[in-house]
Simulated assay, not measured.
Amino acid sequence: MDLEFFDDDHLLTAAHVKLVKDLVAFCGQALHLRADTEMAITIVEDAEIRRINREYRATDRVTDVISFAIEDEHEELHGFTAVPRDIGDLFIAPGKVREQAKDYGHSFERELGYTVVHGFLHLNGYDHIKPEDEAVMIPLQKRILADFGLKR
């Protein structure tokens, strides 16, 4: 996985940044993605994720993660080397993640991991709106977290 990571305000510790990067790599392996698959994660304050949620999702509230999946996977161009696949961008608000960890009674690390995996799966076409889709996404999410060692 080729991950671009932005935390300009240093909202995460170095250990948390490492956790996120390691987990993204682990998710890429779990889904058997090409090594040159690209994505970006931007860490933002609660006010910024609320603005993004309001502007792009017409929902005026703070959320933990927003995913912007890129639907088009580029194929080989005229016989040349394949263009790396860009699956999209995640915006994560650690303030909201911290609040949810407290509400659910588990560690910040576990909730951050859950948020990363959840968003990652959305970038790869998984969803949980319909019961049949949820029956695929949620068990996969739980398996990845457990295999990585982030249990409730």
Score class of each variant (00 low, 15 high):
Met1Val: 11
Met1Phe: 06
Asp2Asn: 14
Glu4Ala: 14
Phe5His: 04
His10Ile: 12
Leu12Glu: 03
Ala15Gly: 07
His16Met: 10
Val20Met: 02
Val20Arg: 01
Lys21Cys: 10
Leu23Gly: 03
Ala25Ile: 06
Gly28Lys: 06
Gln29Gly: 12
Ala30Asn: 00
Leu31Tyr: 01
Leu31Asp: 01
Leu31Met: 07
Arg34Gln: 11
Arg34Thr: 09
Ala35Glu: 09
Ala35Cys: 02
Thr37Cys: 09
Glu38His: 14
Ile41Thr: 03
Val44Glu: 03
Val44Arg: 04
Asp46His: 01
Asp46Tyr: 00
Ala47Tyr: 11
Ile49Ala: 01
Tyr56Ile: 00
Tyr56Cys: 01
Arg57Asn: 09
Thr59Tyr: 12
Arg61Phe: 02
Arg61Asp: 08
Arg61Glu: 12
Val62Ile: 13
Thr63Asp: 09
Val65Phe: 04
Val65Asp: 01
Ile66Trp: 02
Ala69Thr: 11
Ala69Arg: 15
Ile70Asn: 14
Ile70Ala: 11
Glu71Ser: 02
Glu71Met: 00
His74Arg: 12
His74Cys: 09
Glu75Ile: 05
Leu77Glu: 00
Phe80Ala: 10
Thr81Lys: 10
Val83Met: 10
Ile87Pro: 02
Asp89Tyr: 12
Asp89Arg: 15
Leu90Cys: 07
Ile92Cys: 01
Gly95Glu: 12
Gln100Asp: 08
Ala101Lys: 04
Lys102Leu: 10
Tyr104Lys: 14
Tyr104Trp: 13
Gly105Cys: 06
Ser107Met: 02
Ser107Ile: 07
Arg110Thr: 12
Glu111Arg: 08
Val116Thr: 11
Val116Trp: 03
Val117Met: 13
Gly119Arg: 10
Gly119Val: 11
Leu121Cys: 06
Leu121Trp: 05
Asn124Asp: 05
His128Ala: 11
Ile129Lys: 15
Glu132Pro: 04
Glu134Lys: 15
Val136Asn: 00
Met137His: 04
Ile138Gln: 08
Ile138Val: 15
Ile138Asn: 02
Leu140Tyr: 06
Leu140Val: 11
Leu140Ile: 11
Gln141Pro: 00
Ala146Asn: 13
Ala146Trp: 09
Phe148Lys: 06
Phe148Arg: 07
Gly149Thr: 05
Leu150Gln: 06
Leu150Lys: 09
Lys151Ile: 10
Arg152Ala: 13
